[in-house]
Every structure is written in C-alpha cells, then in structure tokens.
Design a protein around this nucleic acid. Structure first.
Lengths: 110, 110
DNA sequence: GACATTATTACGATAACCGACTACGATTGG
DNA sequence: CCAATCGTAGTCGGTTATCGTAATAATGTC
C-alpha cells in the first residue's frame, strides 16, 4: 500500500484537491503558497509547478479571478477569488462528490 | 456552466470514476464495455482509448487482475477482479472521499 | 547584504482524447 | 448449410495537455 500512495495521488486524487481549492476560494481569497501548505496538511503533496499553472488555468476558465499589487513586480503575491461561475462549478462538484460518496459507502456486503 | 462541463470532466472528475471502477470491481468482475456504459449512466463520457489503458495500468499496479478466455483471440473480453491490494487502495480512497465530502459540506457561512 | 516569501519557467515523462481499426460471435437470409 | 451482416469487445496511432522536479527571479524584511 505504502508504495502506491504516489501513484494514487497522481492517478486519482489529483481532482480532489482541486475541489479543495475552489471550496477555500469560496470562503475567502486564496494564495498559492498558503494553498500548498493547506494541502500538505491534508496529506496531498503538490509542487509549485503543479499548483500555479493550475490556478492560472482556473482563472482562464473564469472560475477564479486574481488581484495583485501592480507595484509588486512579476512575482508579487496573487490573491484568487471565486467568481460567480466558479460558484456554479463548485456546486456542481458538490453534487458529484455526494453522488460518489453515496455510491461507495453503500456496503451491502455481497 | 454548460461549456465548462468538458473541462471539469477532464480537470477534476477524471479521478472520480476511477474510484467507481474500483468500487464496482469489488462487487464483481468488471468488463471494459460494461464500465463504459455504467459511467455514461452517471454522466461521465469516457472514450475506449481512455478506459482500456486505464484498466491496464490498474492491473500493472496490482490493483486489478484480469481473466480472459485463452481461446478467444487477441480481443477476447477481459474480466477484471479487485485484488487484495486493490481493496486496500479502495479503502484508502473511501477515507479520502469522506474527508473531502465532510470538508466541502461544512457550510458554516464565514 | 543575507534570508524568507512568492511566483514563474523549462523540460521530460506520462496520461487523455479521438477515431479508426481488428477480431470474434451470433443472427439472418438465400 | 454457407455466407453476409451486425453487434460486442478491445487495441492502436498521433496529438495535445498535464504533472513533477528543480532551478530561477523578484520583492520584502531583518
């Protein structure tokens, strides 16, 4: 089991913490570094090279919008907010998570 | 929202139906075509070119094992069974799904 | 000036998608 | 009874996009 963790993380859990991100963005602005820590807390080891392109994609998709101090230079810290569209996506995902949860906990011991 | 579905599917829901597969394999042997239908029923459009390599990877990882009629030729139908290791992986995933579910439904309106 | 924080980038490896294709079996029709 | 057709199941090829690692750059702080 232990050696499978990395494979599971990449193969399956990738989408899970993306939901986390949207969820957190709904509660307040999200910053890349903070999100990396938060995910580590949950056992998801995510690298910057994965996180930042992801946040950019989500912004490109219109799920997040970012604010940045224009004086801060090209690597200034960016705060991401959930957009209206992002809220709809999150709601949709909530339903999917619930559906999955219901399905796999139905342990009727066949 | 509508146009986002495809993106969501690829970006986030990919892992979800992989859990579905393991779950179904725990209940009984799983066949590619049947699984494709089952996922369509849940709204996940997956192409054969995605499904079959995935099943092969899962077998390679030791989560599934396949049985096939040796007389059936190179494209004979394969039945996939969940291995002991697959059970452990599934159990691990159950916990992760629960954790995610708990987290995102905790709507304490901050 | 040294150090911490934060984000960006490059690049190799792998996965995902689409669609066309192959192989076998069952059914139908002359 | 043979042959053509259709349905089912899985494979393959080529392109695109994502992930991971690690190095890098810019700004703020002591």
């Amino acid at each position: 089991m232990e050696p499978d963790i990395k494979i599971i993380l990449r193969e399956i859990l990738l989408g899970f913490w993306k939901v986390h991100i949207l969820h957190h963005a709904a509660e307040g602005p999200v910053v890349g570094q903070w999100m990396l820590q938060e995910l580590r807390r949950h056992g998801y080891e995510v690298s910057p090279g994965t996180m930042y392109p992801l946040l950019q994609r989500m912004e490109r998709n219109g799920w997040l919008r970012s604010e940045v101090n224009p004086e801060g230079g090209p690597r200034a810290r960016k705060s991401y907010y959930l957009t209206q569209r992002g809220h709809e996506v999150l709601e949709f995902l909530r339903e999917r998570v619930e559906e999955l949860w219901m399905e796999i906990t139905n342990e009727a011991e066949h």
